[in-house]
Nucleic acid binder design. Structure first.
Ligand SMILES: NC(=O)c1ccc[n+]([C@@H]2O[C@H](COP(=O)([O-])OP(=O)(O)OC[C@H]3O[C@@H](n4cnc5c(N)ncnc54)[C@H](O)[C@@H]3O)[C@@H](O)[C@H]2O)c1
Ligand SMILES: NC(=O)c1ccc[n+]([C@@H]2O[C@H](COP(=O)([O-])OP(=O)(O)OC[C@H]3O[C@@H](n4cnc5c(N)ncnc54)[C@H](O)[C@@H]3O)[C@@H](O)[C@H]2O)c1
Lengths: 206, 206
DNA sequence: TTCAAAGTGTTAATAAAATAACACTGTTTA
DNA sequence: TAAACAGTGTTATTTTATTAACACTTTGAA
């Protein structure tokens, strides 16, 4: 299958999450406009996204919720699952880890890295924390492909580079420092301060 | 001034942050391509964004860093500043609060709201935590315009509605539940799980 | 059984964002 | 002083994302 637009992937993730709740509430079928309403988007967008992943409904009853959840899974999950490491298990790293742990069967946070002697070699928020020096070893051993970067900005670049050298293939960067990665590594950046400033701007402008 | 595109506002926030570092490193002038390099975008994009805010350089030395920082401030900050409340001061709320506190002179987190008796009426991560029942009162009294929503998903909607009734004009929603807000309220949503799943998808697809 | 209603998949049109192109202005240097 | 250069501001083009339009299918009521 051709690579999907990033925006579509984001929405698919949202569809699945909302569908799980919808299914749990005892509903087995859903119309495009209903799914759209759950996410506050338009029905056309839903249908277009589903078209892109080649999913078709049994007509007139809407989409089979369970089937659709599974289909989205085959598109966005990898069959064997992927392992994740949190680099920098401070306030934010800990919050994310304890929140995410167990939420997705195909995505597991299996290790944390830190350089604080107080944290190293202990289990924090349910995952073992290793010293950064062992990063290469552990990333290989545990087959970790994704890194969540939550260390102080000053160390973001060198540590990210080290993670990439160790074999990381995707980074979600929460630091305020823009990273530069080779083409074979996928980078997603989220800057919370920017989000807050953006809200402030649009509140001001009305 | 005409309202700027959201994407431009996001970049302006990024420009300013990087310029502050650049200035601190002792540089007083910067070319568009240098600023672009800091953020890993193109020089055209920088120039286009600056065009939109009507900023012009004294030619040939590049942009005056200090002046540009100030100009961006006049665009994205409100003169009198804005007050922020964190709703739900759990793991994530605490991480954000302690991180953000004092970072922006025009944006202050001045209150937290929670319903946990253990937290209420105490100072957490540097801000006073009030019971949710007092939300309307405090939001008015402290002139709070922005809410960071970090409560469990089940309560996201009713509590957001209450905040809006109390006078909140902008929400940054970190819960996994899509919100619906009136037109005069600005809503920004960030879904961390979606971000992680997106990284996983693009790692899988290469 | 036929006709209206509701919902889907897809193609076409529109809008938004990023990129390219380029004329213009100072700056350097020959 | 003139010619080459570097960098800017702006308009034009391309690309991407969203929205609209519509023909088709199923359903159910008349
Ligand atoms: N806390 C937030 O809500 C928030 C919001 C936006 C951005 N951020 C960014 O996330 C990052 C972390 O924020 P935080 O609040 O969790 O900070 P924190 O200080 O609580 O955590 C940082 C962690 O990184 C570890 N660390 C420091 N240097 C390291 C190194 N060289 N190698 C490995 N580990 C190292 C520290 O021991 C600590 O555990 C920062 O870059 C910050 O800009 C945080
Ligand atoms: N922790 C993360 O990194 C993370 C990541 C993505 C999304 N989220 C979302 O952020 C939210 C909070 O996550 P968390 O990990 O901080 O959870 P948490 O349980 O640590 O914190 C939730 C806080 O909200 C308070 N609360 C509960 N009900 C309330 C109510 N009705 N009114 C006011 N306060 C109430 C609780 O007392 C607690 O302090 C969740 O919706 C979660 O989906 C968290």
């Amino acid at each position: 299958m051709k690579k999907l637009p990033g925006k579509t992937v984001e929405r698919l993730s949202g569809y699945r999450r909302n569908l799980l709740g919808y299914l749990a509430a005892g509903n087995n079928y859903i119309y495009s406009h209903e799914l759209a309403a759950l996410l506050h988007i338009t029905a056309v967008q839903v249908r277009r996204d589903l078209m892109l992943i080649g999913y078709s409904s049994v007509q007139k009853k809407g989409y089979d919720v369970k089937e659709l959840i599974d289909t989205i899974g085959t598109i966005i999950d990898s069959e064997q699952g992927q392992n994740i490491a949190v680099i920098g298990i401070g306030n934010l790293g800990r919050a994310i880890t304890s929140y995410f742990k167990g939420k997705r069967s195909k995505l597991n946070i299996v290790a944390a890295f830190d350089n604080d002697p107080q944290k190293v070699n202990r289990v924090i928020a349910g995952v073992r924390c290793y010293p950064v020096e062992k990063m290469e070893h552990i990333i290989n051993e545990q087959n970790i492909t994704i890194a969540l970067l939550t260390i102080p900005p000053d160390f973001a670049r060198p540590v990210a580079d080290a993670a990439i050298r160790a074999g990381i293939k995707g980074i979600l960067n929460f630091t305020t420092v823009p990273l530069n990665v080779p083409l074979n590594v996928y980078l997603e950046e989220y800057d919370m301060i920017t989000s807050i400033e953006k809200v402030a701007y649009f509140v001001k402008e009305g």
